[in-house]
Design a protein around this nucleic acid. Structure first.
Ligand SMILES: [Mn+2]
Ligand SMILES: [Mn+2]
Ligand SMILES: [Zn+2]
Ligand SMILES: [Zn+2]
Lengths: 142, 142
DNA sequence: TTCTTGGATGAGAATCATTATAATCCAGGA
DNA sequence: TCCTGGATTATAATGATTCTCATCCAAGAA
């Protein structure tokens, strides 16, 4: 069993990333407990260990880590608000790379299983979903 | 059959919203063709009819329309980036109101049906989804 | 050990979407 | 016609994120 230090050096090595002190502490801050964290939360945690770290370094390295698969981005977010007039319940297909959104038809959700998994009190009246993947253009390019 | 003017005046009336000229043209710009539109796109389209309109009015009224159900917001977006260290494929449950994100377990996706619906070339290797609803607190409050 | 060098970092400016503010406008009722 | 409250406008402010660039530093060369 390896320490989290060793684990990070390993992952960094495999991704071709230099295993700097800052990257080490950022990674460990995210891995310290399961959860979904913002750059500011990570910044706050990391500063306790390394007060001189810059917020830009947090952003730089979170992006790097996500790109190299060391971390996962929770919600691929479009940069801007999008609205539509189609009020018929329907789902969306979102490209994680270029953020393009298109409609997707079909009943591919098992609502019974879904509501069985939802926590008590969570309102799933008409649950809409977003499915993430890579659009044709992006999967061709990469 | 009613004109789109009449349709909007109807909807506005039902929602208790004043049917102003600006609201009329904003609504019609979104309804002119099916699609997912940003405030800037709508602004550009509307200015051709009503050059004096303000971008703030676009934002104000898109929000109002979404709140009153005249339009749908395509992707409920968190204000900030969120990352996590859990790389095991899993889905998320997102509150459309407070944007809280939590993990949801379980196999409630029919991948066969899903990939049958996806457009040609869309890469759905390991499709992750976000399910939208209202968390306990928000569904209690409202 | 000292030198060299390219990538990494830190500080702060810049950007972009969105929201807030406050003055003005205006439709509908008295 | 005059009033009034909500709507609109222009612009400032905000907040997250990215950019710029001077500085730093670790690892390899000499
Ligand atoms: Mn749609
Ligand atoms: Mn998660
Ligand atoms: Zn794409
Ligand atoms: Zn909520």
């Amino acid at each position: 069993m390896q320490t989290s230090h060793e684990q990070f050096r390993d992952l960094a090595w495999k991704s071709g990333l230099a295993a700097t002190h800052q990257r080490q502490v950022i990674y460990e801050a995210v891995m310290a407990a399961p959860g979904h964290y913002s750059p500011e939360q990570i910044y706050a945690a990391v500063r306790r260990q390394t007060p001189s770290i810059s917020l830009a370094t947090i952003y730089n390295n979170l992006r790097l880590f996500v790109e190299h698969g060391l971390l996962r981005e929770v919600s691929p977010r479009t940069s801007t608000l999008l609205v539509e007039g189609n009020l018929e319940p329907h789902h969306h297909l979102v490209c994680t790379r270029c953020k393009a959104v298109q409609d997707i038809e079909g009943d591919f959700i098992n609502y019974k299983k879904l509501s069985r998994q939802a926590p008590r009190g969570f309102d799933l009246t008409q649950p809409l979903v977003e499915v993430f993947g890579l659009c044709r253009r992006c999967s061709a390019e990469k």
